[in-house]
């Protein structure tokens, strides 16, 4: 991969919180490495406390100063000559120039992210003028354009509305419009559709796909719902207890999931086929995600895994190994299990 078709490369990212060594807690996320290509939609999938949100906050530089971050987050320029930046080494000011401009983020709950006392137009114009040298009138005109791009019916009316006057789906679109206002190369969307209805969710997913085609931006889409992920993803990264346990092209993932955890996640999802067949009970994974202090020494999924073998899985952390073209899995037994 040359620099040009990769937007972001994360290498060995670890984030820890709490007291310093010697009584430090283990890191929340550990040795997270992946890359995002230009125009690619990467879905980061995992349960709560798997570390997917911490990963995205680290990319945005939004973790509190007390967080202990190690590793490398390289943001590559679009042109061959443009320098690559290590986001973790940048000063706050340099970081601010990138945030919202080259990487922006959409959060889960759009109500808490809009200021309730300013109109949509007011907030959108502020962002546009922050990123570009624009007059108020010009920014307003462009703002209407962005609202139109995210599929809002009467953008000029919407600009004058207050956040509480909009429905959930509209607010989420406004948030996406604001994230797009800096013309980012990479959009991080943290569970943007979890709070929305199915029909609105379908519209938002549709919108992200369309914007990707139009602008060529890359998207990191964070979700815990694999059905949603399958709808838009080019690549699936599954996280469990702070580690990446599977990293694969979407096609390979949904036809041959290799990690037992991914298979269990797929099984736990109520599917259309089950409704058709009148099946009532879902398969579940016994136990809970291990807490920070109780993570097992070997494979972190071993205590809950139906395929676990005591002598093999409970000691020494397994490494990511190749399970086919463009398919990495953190399981020692994937070949036997798949067979």
């Amino acid at each position: 991969m040359t620099t040009r078709d990769t937007v972001l490369e994360v290498d060995g990212l670890s984030v820890g919180f709490g007291p310093q060594a010697p009584n430090a807690l283990p890191p929340v996320i550990e040795d997270v490495s992946f890359s995002v290509r230009r125009g690619e939609i990467v879905c980061l999938v995992g349960e709560s406390s798997s570390g997917k949100s911490v990963t995205s906050l680290a990319l945005m530089g939004l973790l509190p100063p007390s967080a202990r971050i190690t590793g490398e987050i390289m943001l590559h320029g679009r042109e061959a000559g443009e320098p690559s930046l290590d986001l973790l080494q940048l000063s706050r000011r340099a970081r601010n120039r990138i945030r919202g401009h080259r990487i922006s983020m959409v959060f889960q709950d759009p109500m808490n992210c809009l200021d309730p006392i300013f109109s949509i137009g007011n907030q959108l114009v502020e962002i546009l003028r922050w990123h570009n040298a624009l007059s108020r009138v010009e920014a307003w005109r462009q703002g209407i354009g962005y609202l139109h791009a995210v599929g809002i019916n009467q953008p000029d009316v919407c600009m004058k509305r207050m956040p509480h006057e909009l429905s959930g789906g509209m607010r989420q679109r406004v948030m996406i419009a604001m994230a797009l206002a800096g013309k980012p190369e990479l959009l991080i969307a943290d569970e943007p559709t979890t709070a929305l209805d199915v029909t609105v969710q379908a519209q938002v997913l549709d919108l992200l796909l369309r914007l990707r085609t139009q602008t060529g931006m890359s998207v990191i889409f964070i979700t815990h719902n694999l059905a949603v992920a399958s709808r838009i993803a080019d690549r699936i990264i599954v996280m469990y207890a702070g580690q990446i346990v599977e990293n694969s092209s979407a096609e390979s993932f949904f036809t041959r999931p290799a990690m037992p955890y991914s298979r269990a996640l797929l099984d736990a999802l109520p599917t259309v086929d089950m409704i058709r067949q009148g099946q009532k009970r879902l398969k579940t994974i016994s136990g809970n995600v291990p807490g920070l202090a109780e993570r097992p020494a070997g494979c972190r999924f071993f205590p809950r895994c139906v395929h676990g073998v005591a002598a093999m899985c409970d000691s020494g952390s397994p490494v990511l190994q190749s399970a086919g073209a463009d398919h990495l899995v953190r399981c020692r037994r994937w070949e036997e299990i798949s067979a």
């Binding site: 019916n153 029909t199 997913l205 549709d206 796909l209 369309r210 694999l226 399958s230 709808r231 949904f254």
Partner: peptide, 23 residues
Amino acid sequence: LLQAIPRIGTKAMPGVAPCMPGK
């Protein structure tokens, strides 16, 4: 509503979102 259910194995095609009551 049924058409809007996300399901595994069907990739969304831009522009075929189901019709729904908009504001």
